[in-house]
Amino acid sequence: MSARFVCGKVLASLATLAFVVVFNFFLFRVVESDPVASLFRGRNLTAQQRDTLTRQFGLDGSKGRQFVRYLEQTARLNLGRSYATNEPVASEIRRKAPPTIALVGISTLLSAVIGIFIGVVAAWRRGSKVDYASTTFTMATYSMPDFWLGMLLLTTFAVALGWFPVSGITDPTSDATGPAKLADQAWHMFLPALTLTLAYLGEYALVMRSSLLDTMREDYLVLARAKGLRDVVVRNRHAVPNALLPVVTLIAINFGFVLSGAIAVETIFSWPGLGLATYDALNGPDLPMLQGLFLVFSVAVIACNLVADLLYAYLDPRVRSA
């Protein structure tokens, strides 16, 4: 993989990022609003307090001046202050990112592993009962909206049966630390992770299946069998690695999107991550928070796309020369 190739891809990503940063500012200014008036309706504010609050929210000055201030602040990673809590947006995002990364990371890992496994088995035993059963199952879960699935699991296992908690990441009355705290968080994460895993494993299974079916027609597999290798070895050491290419890039791209797309699942389970933060900010509208979150999600998607591009080029030499 040449340095020129890598530089080209990186520069393209940076250009996209620059566009997103500028677009971000104007997108949220299309919504005309005076948060001081709407947040403080019915409160006794003196003129001095109004001015102080307007300055605090960064709303004084012309749009041009606000834009320049926005660029300066973003360069220093200062994303402003939330209208709702008056905390710095950057620290709110830093605080809420780990639960989302944990949830999405584990779900992506599980759905990829299980999805690939199902796809491989379905393709290898094409036409058999196993193939039909697994394809039906994956199509069913893939077509289910993730929020509907989440509500279903919540209502059945948390509300009706009481096996899992209905909300949150920890038990508010416990002071547990260390492994006990991790176990408590894992117990809270079970249902949302199950929801996301079921919702996305279908995609990996179906893509893996069709990719492997294409690979199975290749001549080099006939040679491998002729050499006397066992069926399982032919599958795992020769067919699957070549068929994995599209799935690997799919995982990388999906990770970027699922980071932001877990909004519905996080809201249903009150999982205190970035998705729930987006939902709460939309209810405000808490514009600095939305701006900051939008920027973070865009950066995640751009970065994951870059990784997917480079990974694909690394794995498949044919792409590099194109």
Partner: peptide, 30 residues
């Protein structure tokens, strides 16, 4: 933030320590 806050009984309260030891406020989205 966004989940709960917990308060504990204050033995120095001028009316006397409340009978309740802890008050937990939990936020629900649903």
């Amino acid at each position: 933030k966004g989940q709960f806050f917990r308060m504990k009984a204050n033995p120095s309260y001028w009316k006397g320590r409340p009978r309740v030891d802890e008050f937990v406020f939990r936020k629900f989205n649903n």
